[in-house]
């Protein structure tokens, strides 16, 4: 979506145009849901995060700053919502294992499905901060600048956090025998 169309859609949403709100959700629900799934590791929780994200978007659309891109602003809300829910999960269910990571995956071959599950499981072993940068970089295709804006971090910190997250991810995948190099 180009910037002009995005701004027109935001203006329509600010005026309470239901069609514009529907379009906004339709355009962004898939990337937001995917990012939420990779953050949460569960289809149900990802749907909850996505729903809460869009409700917050509409609630705060009047305060949208046009110097940002809509997707960047929406991801920021999504990641913060996911982080809040993860904190809540830890507070309320300290002994619970991470949810089954194969949930919500499309039909795949058994080998692909198992690999996806292993990778998702490894993602869930990272710290929330590390997982956030991996998710934004790989599953939301954000640049360092985008990630910095979304997470309110200097680009230098994004770079070092992404480096640390990759190193952790690489080690864990090697321990699990997924990355055999």
């Amino acid at each position: 979506m180009d910037k002009d169309r995005e701004m027109a859609m935001v203006a329509d949403c600010q005026n309470g145009n239901k069609k514009a709100m529907e379009t906004l959700v339709r355009e962004l629900q898939k990337p937001v849901y995917n990012a939420a799934y990779r953050m949460m590791g569960s289809a149900d929780e990802a749907a909850d995060v996505a729903q809460t994200t869009f409700l917050k978007v509409f609630e705060n659309i009047d305060r949208f700053d046009p110097k940002y891109r809509l997707f960047s602003w929406t991801y920021r809300i999504a990641v913060n919502t996911a982080l809040d829910q993860l904190k809540q999960r830890k507070r309320t269910k300290p002994l619970e294992q991470a949810p089954e990571s194969t949930m919500g995956l499309p039909q795949e071959t058994t080998a692909t499905s198992q690999l996806s599950a292993e990778v998702q499981s490894t993602l869930m072993e990272l710290s929330d901060d590390q997982r956030s940068v991996i998710v934004l970089r790989y599953f939301s295709d954000c640049s360092y600048q985008d990630i910095g804006r979304i997470l309110e971090l200097p680009e230098k910190t994004v770079k070092s956090r992404l480096f640390t997250a990759r190193r952790q991810m690489k080690r864990k995948l090697q321990e699990h025998g997924v990355l055999s190099l």
């Binding site: 898939k30 849901y33 998702q120 991810m169 997924v178």
Partner: peptide, 14 residues
């Protein structure tokens, strides 16, 4: 290999 693994994960349908 890590990049390829992560980028190769399927996109999920909401």
């Amino acid at each position: 290999a890590l990049d390829s693994l992560l980028k190769g994960l399927p996109e999920l349908e909401p």
